[in-house]
Amino acid sequence: MSFEFQGIDHVQLAAPKGCEIKARDFFGIILGLKEIPKPENLQGRGGCWFQCGNQEIHIGVEEDFKGAKKAHPGLVVKNLEELKKTLLANQIMIMEDIPINGRNRIHVNDPFGNRLEFLEYI
């Protein structure tokens, strides 16, 4: 094979028009992800981008938006218990899940109904 995959650059999550304030509150303030500037040629589309480790999370505006209930990113976190405390302190419902292959995990919904999974290697 003359090509190889080297990883994931970003995950795109959809949200309704006017989502930016809620996205910045959830991803930026509550989760503590740093917002990064969108390229100038994409700024007119709405949404916002965040740094997540070496990857990015892009929140993009989608017409006729519906939250993703099954498809989701799996975000690796260190100190899952502290994240759970932060989420609960912000009235964000946590869905516990059984550990898999040496990973503890929980699920939450972002403010737009998209499923997010947080995993910690044990």
Rank of each mutant, 00 (worst) to 15 (best):
A89P: 13
G67A: 07
E117C: 03
L13N: 09
G102T: 07
L80K: 01
I36G: 01
N104L: 15
G113Q: 08
E56K: 14
W49S: 04
G44A: 04
L13V: 11
V77L: 00
C48E: 12
A68H: 05
I57F: 08
G28K: 05
P73A: 03
G44L: 05
L33H: 04
I100F: 11
H72I: 03
G53F: 04
I21Q: 15
K34L: 00
K84C: 13
K78S: 05
K85H: 14
H107N: 04
E40L: 06
G67Y: 12
R103M: 13
P111K: 08
L13S: 08
V76H: 00
G113A: 12
Q12N: 15
L31M: 10
Q6P: 06
V11H: 04
G28P: 11
N90T: 07
I29Q: 13
G18P: 13
G47W: 07
I21R: 10
K66S: 10
A71L: 15
E96R: 06
L83T: 02
G18D: 04
I92S: 14
F50N: 03
A68N: 15
L42S: 09
L119C: 03
R105Q: 06
E120A: 04
F65I: 13
N54Y: 01
C52Q: 07
G102Q: 10
N114V: 01
N101Y: 11
R24A: 12
M1F: 12
G44Q: 08
I92W: 08
N114Q: 12
A23L: 08
E117H: 08
N101T: 14
K70L: 12
Y121L: 14
Q12Y: 05
G18T: 03
